[in-house]
């Protein structure tokens, strides 16, 4: 149930996928909104506090997600050879962009050597600081990689709908239902009987 199989995603991969999806879209909206806030808004300090804290937690989740993805079998890709190749590169790009957004965000807030307070729970220390114009340059990377990540995620969702509605494959269903990853085993067992 927890683990992946060549047939589908296990529960842990599903939870990691959807929690990071929700968090990343939320952080994008929050980040966009908060950078336009008026100095007198009551959210002027609070919104960045949430954005930084959630961002750090998402970074930890993503690192775990990548480790789990590498450690576990990947369900077989659907579609033509071209579709499978595009999916493979697209997924790689999503991981790279997620890391780029998260690391650049971290580099903005830690540019002068101070750590990031994570929702009052702990402080993530600064590792790299005082690079030339670190905060401004990391800010440019943060914004553009976030925009490309959101666009690519939308393409990722469209591709899932295409597999689901046009090709009638269980591509989307297996990212929602961990039982699909177990079906192969049952089928093999019942065949054996």
């Amino acid at each position: 149930m927890w683990r992946n199989s060549p047939r589908g995603w296990g529960l842990l991969a599903i939870v990691l996928h959807w929690s990071s999806a929700v968090a990343i879209f939320g952080l994008f909206a929050l980040g966009w909104w908060m950078t336009g806030l008026d100095y007198y808004s009551e959210w002027y300090h609070l919104a960045p506090w949430w954005h930084r804290g959630i961002g750090v937690l998402v970074m930890l989740v993503i690192l775990g997600r990548i480790a789990w993805r590498l450690a576990q079998p990947t369900p077989a890709a659907h579609g033509s050879r071209l579709e499978r190749r595009a999916a493979s590169w697209g997924h790689l790009a999503l991981y790279v962009l997620m890391l780029a957004v998260l690391i650049s965000g971290y580099l903005i807030s830690t540019a002068d050597g101070k750590g990031i307070e994570v929702l009052g729970m702990f402080t993530l220390p600064a590792v790299i600081s005082d690079l030339p114009e670190q905060a401004s340059r990391a800010g440019v990377v943060h914004w553009y990689s976030a925009v490309v990540l959101i666009i690519l995620s939308a393409g990722h969702a469209l591709a899932a709908f295409k597999h689901h509605y046009v090709d009638r494959q269980d591509t989307l269903r297996r990212m929602l239902d961990p039982r699909l990853s177990q079906q192969g085993r049952h089928a093999a067992e019942s065949k054996g009987r």
Binding site: I108, S109, T110, A111, D112, E133, A135
Partner: peptide, 24 residues
């Protein structure tokens, strides 16, 4: 101008942005 510091990276970034000094 880009060497500005106020001991707060996010504030420095904001001061250097187009909102204030437009250091780019």
């Amino acid at each position: 101008v880009t060497s500005l510091t106020t001991n707060h990276a996010e504030r420095d970034k904001h001061i250097l942005s187009g909102d204030f000094l437009n250091a780019d």
